[in-house]
Design a protein around this nucleic acid. Structure first.
Lengths: 218, 218, 218, 218
DNA sequence: CATGAATGAGTATTCATTCAT
DNA sequence: TATGAATGAATACTCATTCAT
């Protein structure tokens, strides 16, 4: 006896969102279909009305996340008339947004488990993240602010550094203050990119002053 | 009816080793107590004679791995009379050894799951890995081969770069050739460490020539 | 929002036909209400507008099949002015038709499951099949072509023989050629009916020659 | 916490027997693992300690039944120095035993469902039943008591007749008295086998008189 | 008449854990 | 020490049935 009825697409989204939240909270392996339907507040059977299996749900989430990511990144980096430094800033902001969204779920996907998912995420993420960054680096080299013979690998390396530092910071004693972290990342990035020392911080200070005009419009 | 009898510590180790191997082979989630006792070749009940629960076994494995890691790293970096560059080389070799040993197991630990394990590994690993590297970097700064105001974070960053590049290489189209990978990591490391360009490769070439005397004896 | 509207009886029939087809295709146990409504091309709820339950549908199908069967058999055997042999021929043709129609569904009904269905089919089938055959046998005895003190049981036996032989033929090595099978069934039937050897085949040959006039008009 | 412990083979048999009984009582499709363990009086998990799956249990039952059947039939028909009539009597008794044992379970197997089971039973049963009967018929032909050009099909037909008559008798109004049924089957069998009328009943009367010496010793 | 979202009891299967022997 | 039969809670998934719209 149905208590209340929703539009199909709404419910599907509710499931996806509830699942994503739960995966982030307790990890994928510890989240049962029971948990999901309980959070949505519906009967178990309804889950299978919207998804053929748990696997399908997972796929749906992956697709959703990847689409959102790519959207964010492309939107940020495709703006006309930006300098390499400005694009880098956009990139940084958007990848922070992504990181926040991903949470533990990302960590799950990083396991090998089954190659399907691993490729779906690891590869698909890097497929738009690295080239975007690579393009920015190349532009910077042309503009004379960066200098490196390995733009692609430098792109990778930048993601790597941000990764460890943020990751290690979380839950440890390395977590001092965000300000210093930013400074250090800036410093290390400059070195990797072959930029003049101070370029990044100066740029950051600048967009803080009259951010709306030059830097991020938001 | 007991078939044979072993000293307690032997058996316990047998369990730990079998479990570790299985975790690496099929992943933690797919390894049951049944699998473990089968590999050891004993009955199920015996497992619970040596371990209060599966969780305890996991803890034991973590301890063992961490001990081994620390052992390897300290052994390598505490040798008397080495230059920073030589120590770095030792460090690199031993962390490769660790990486090989860890396999999928490490990936499992990198999930948060429950904070206990996460702290046990992620943090405890960095707790000896980063300081060791940090010390090397500081020594390098003193020796004039490196130059950085942030030795600790540079240490972290180095691990980060190696991580992404190796990780991304696996299973993607970025997997070109190991030689080039080494070259690039060397290049990026030099920049992060503020070393003169070419220092690393030159050093590597050198230890290839008369490796036994100066560098690693192997 | 109703897409189209049909007369009640039409829809009901559509359901019955779709269900019967599906039962034959995939077996009763593997056919869900979902399958049925999908084939009819309507929503799930509509099924329960026409049938109180799946059980009721089953009953409806049984009724329909039995009615059709009886119709076929009576039509065939009640023709005026036929000899016993001619009637037997009619009977044979019509029971083959029934067999074809029944398919897997019959097999389902042959299970006991619940007595209701078992009686509904097994008994109700025999209730018109056996008497019809019995009447033919008795007529044959009067006409002097058959000779048996047990017309009813001989009727039963004839169905029995056809059953095993056809059934066993399907999917086994007993499946040689249809011609021989017919010959043998004819031979055995003659014996059971106490007919002169060769009567059947001769008759069959005859109706092949000028079938339209004497034998089955079709 | 285990309440009591049994030898492995005993328990396995308990499961097989309980399952067989339940299949006979309520049909295979309506018997759940839950039902089975409840009847045995143990926890659900134990079932999977002894059987990999429900399918394996089914296989075990099929094997057991077939073995028993073959055992019974071969034991009965391989005795030295019997006449065809005596062997036929043995055969009849043993196939009655089988029929009683099989019950509804047999009916389940007779469905097609999946060919695996169908072949396992239908074919495997006939593979020893028909040849045994065929041999007897041939012996009878040699001894001059039977007369038929189609021993194999006659064998089949005999099983067919017994089948319908017994099956139809069950639960219908054809169920008059066993004595008459036997008489009729005897009569029909004589005809199929080309035996002199009365042969069978005379033989039956005889073994009733001094059964122990000539006929079945039991 | 018709829709389709919602229900919930039921199914097979897994597995960490216990304990009498 | 060692065994292995026994437990039972948990999991993913199915499906007949209901009912607000």
């Amino acid at each position: 006896m149905p208590r209340s009825t929703k539009a199909a697409s709404d419910r599907r989204l509710e499931f996806i969102n509830a699942a994503e939240a739960l995966f982030n909270e307790k990890g994928f392996e510890n989240t049962s279909v029971e948990d999901i339907v309980q959070r949505v507040g519906v009967a178990k059977g309804l889950f299978y009305y919207y998804f053929k299996s748990q696997e399908e749900l997972l796929g749906a989430i992956v697709d959703k996340i990847l689409d959102e990511m790519e959207q964010i990144v492309l939107q940020a980096t495709n703006k006309e008339g930006l300098t390499a430094m400005q694009r880098l800033q956009e990139m940084s902001t958007s990848s922070d947004t992504i990181r926040a969204r991903g949470g533990r779920l990302m960590k799950f996907f990083h396991e090998e488990r089954n190659q399907a998912l691993h490729l779906q995420l690891e590869v698909r993420t890097m497929k738009f993240l690295v080239p975007a960054m690579e393009a920015i680096i190349k532009q910077g080299v042309r503009e004379g602010v960066f200098n490196t013979p390995y733009p692609k690998e430098t792109a990778l390396a930048l993601f790597g550094i941000k990764g460890v530092i943020h990751h290690t910071n979380a839950g440890t004693d390395y977590c001092e203050d965000g300000e210093r972290t930013i400074q250090i990342i800036a410093f290390l990035s400059e070195r990797l990119l072959g930029a003049k020392e101070g370029t990044f911080l100066e740029f950051l200070r600048e967009i803080k002053r009259h951010g709306v005009e030059n830097g991020r419009g938001k």
